[in-house]
Amino acid sequence: MPKIAKLWNKLANPKNIPRLFAVILGLLLIVGFIIPMGLNTDQIYIRPAPQSQMDAGLAIAPYDRGGEVLVSPGVTEAQYPENSKNLGWINSYMTPIAELLKALSPYFGTSICASPGGLIDEILYYTRGFDTILESSILMMAFIIASWLAINFTIDRKEERDIKEDVKRAIASSDRIANEVEESNRKAREKQAKKEFR
């Protein structure tokens, strides 16, 4: 019984939780080695074999999915083609600069694909656009949190000092014995906190 009690106490300490989580997750991943794994060949958004488009000499090599700019749509195998009425048009679209680059050299495939239009943009903005909205919201929230902390605390610490002075004055005006008890209490708690978190 005392062992279980100790275990519960350990579980109540936040410092141990990431470690426990890491161990459990690591063990679960090891289980993955005894489970038969294999890629289902019937996927959506299939891409051609590596290097095959380079060997074929296509100008926007690994990302050529057919279609002509503003003339015919490219090939996009969406999950629900009926939900995306303009399927494939973004896929085949290229900006004028991208077309210029395409004419210049066959080695700019990745850059051209990253400019507006192209296959990745079709997935990121159109067929799975909601994912990208969430993703950019996550980035925005992270920046809000980080910059709020940075601006309000780590950079501007003047307010903090004022608060501390107020607290000092309040403590001084109150009963001296209570003050001492409070102080020693605080010290003891700090000591314990140090023990726990160091």
Binding site: A78, Q79, Y80, N83, S84, Y126, T127, R128, G129, F130, D131
Partner: peptide, 14 residues
């Protein structure tokens, strides 16, 4: 969860 009352299709994400 019972019968589907409706869907909001946003491309592949429904």
């Amino acid at each position: 969860g019972g019968n589907i009352l409706g869907t909001i299709p946003l491309g592949d994400i429904v």
